[in-house]
Amino acid sequence: MLRFLATRVALLLLGLLVAAVLIFAVLRVLPGDVAQVVGGTQASAAQVARIRSELGLDRPVVLQFLDWIGGVARLDLGRSLVTGSPVAAELGQKLEVTLPLAGLSLLFGLGLGLPLGVLSAVLHRRAGGFLIAAAAQLLAAVPVVFAGVLLILLLGSWLHLLPVQGFPLDGWRQPGRAFASLILPALTIGVVEGAVVLRFTRSATLEALGQDHVRAAAARGMTLNRALVVHGLPGVLLSVVSVIGLEIAALLVGAVVVEQLFQLPGVGRMLVADVGNRDLVKVQSELLVLTGLILVVGAVVDVVHRLVDPREREAA
């Protein structure tokens, strides 16, 4: 197990390094000049050149990368090229919105997808199972923006059950208002991602229903549903654990869109603004942190899968 953990940590660090190189290289290809943004439209060529020199943008690209990645290794994400403020402090504030949003979205997605996926598989020969599966196919294809607009109209504008935009200025110092402002955005992401979980759970449950040990338990007098719960669902849950890592990535991508729609001051909204300002240091640090979160979740899922799945331990 220790060897597996060491290998997984090494792969995680290697993945972060490769991601850092790619992010840094891609951002340097984008059009635009942050020095021009800082100087304004009336800045002369000499002024823009001076700003580039002050910001260190005229240094060799390799040295810029080494300075940035060295700071990241020391947990220093640098300073904004536009405002001069520390990136880590601002990013930490934005993550206070984005991480709870992603976590709540995951809870909604699993809460909808797991039970309905099992129910759809159990009723797969009946009209109810077909309707659930068809609804999941439809919801999985719905864009997050469209789902958000529909929920805003239904639960916000028509029924007035939930706030549709904004976040308290005091943040989590007003926990009730802060939590309420995240319910509708999280439900927007959770419904779409829950449809994906539902389809995956349905397939895994149908496979479990056809396994020999489940059929044998039913043949010994246990009802098929009880045999599924006792002998089949543990394997289904192990399969679902594997897909959670992929869903986390989708949740973070969906958060970028949803934060714009619901005017939430999270990482996604900040990232869009920083890309527009060509604030390279902030953008590359934000992308690396998001990538790191996805890689860490994937590593944790792999470790949990190895710990709870006896088949993988025996194979190892």
Results as ranks from 00 to 15, higher is better:
residue 159 L to M: 13
residue 76 D to V: 06
residue 194 G to V: 08
residue 98 T to G: 09
residue 112 L to K: 02
residue 4 F to I: 07
residue 293 L to Y: 05
residue 164 V to C: 01
residue 237 L to G: 06
residue 140 A to M: 08
residue 248 I to Y: 11
residue 145 V to S: 12
residue 157 S to W: 09
residue 79 R to V: 09
residue 1 M to T: 09
residue 224 L to W: 01
residue 228 L to D: 01
residue 250 A to H: 10
residue 250 A to C: 06
residue 195 A to K: 07
residue 79 R to C: 05
residue 214 V to K: 00
residue 316 A to Y: 14
residue 42 Q to Y: 11
residue 66 L to D: 05
residue 242 S to E: 09
residue 115 P to V: 09
residue 207 E to N: 10
residue 299 A to F: 14
residue 136 A to T: 07
residue 79 R to S: 13
residue 26 V to N: 02
residue 175 P to W: 15
residue 71 G to P: 07
residue 308 V to H: 02
residue 112 L to F: 07
residue 81 L to Y: 14
residue 282 K to C: 03
residue 234 P to Y: 03
residue 265 P to M: 10
residue 101 L to P: 03
residue 215 R to Y: 03
residue 284 Q to D: 08
residue 237 L to E: 06
residue 239 S to M: 04
residue 182 L to Q: 05
residue 178 A to N: 10
residue 41 T to Q: 14
residue 197 V to M: 13
residue 96 E to Y: 04
residue 311 R to Q: 13
residue 271 L to I: 06
residue 264 L to P: 00
residue 266 G to C: 08
residue 311 R to K: 13
residue 65 F to V: 11
residue 152 I to H: 05
residue 129 G to T: 10
residue 211 Q to T: 06
residue 154 L to R: 01
residue 65 F to K: 08
residue 18 V to H: 06
residue 260 Q to F: 01
residue 298 G to L: 12
residue 287 L to H: 06
residue 87 V to D: 08
residue 12 L to H: 04
residue 112 L to Q: 06
residue 139 L to Q: 12
residue 300 V to A: 15
residue 298 G to F: 13
residue 296 V to T: 10
residue 113 G to P: 08
residue 200 F to M: 15
residue 240 V to H: 05
residue 15 G to Q: 06
residue 26 V to P: 02
residue 248 I to H: 00
residue 270 M to V: 02
residue 208 A to H: 06
residue 55 L to F: 13
residue 120 S to R: 02
residue 120 S to V: 02
residue 300 V to G: 08
residue 51 I to A: 10
residue 92 G to V: 14
residue 203 S to A: 15
residue 241 V to Q: 11
residue 80 S to G: 11
residue 109 G to D: 03
residue 290 L to M: 15
residue 161 L to E: 06
residue 261 L to Q: 07
residue 293 L to F: 13
residue 263 Q to H: 11
residue 175 P to D: 14
residue 275 V to D: 00
residue 105 S to W: 03
residue 120 S to H: 03
residue 202 R to T: 12
residue 87 V to M: 09
residue 253 V to H: 05
residue 38 V to C: 09
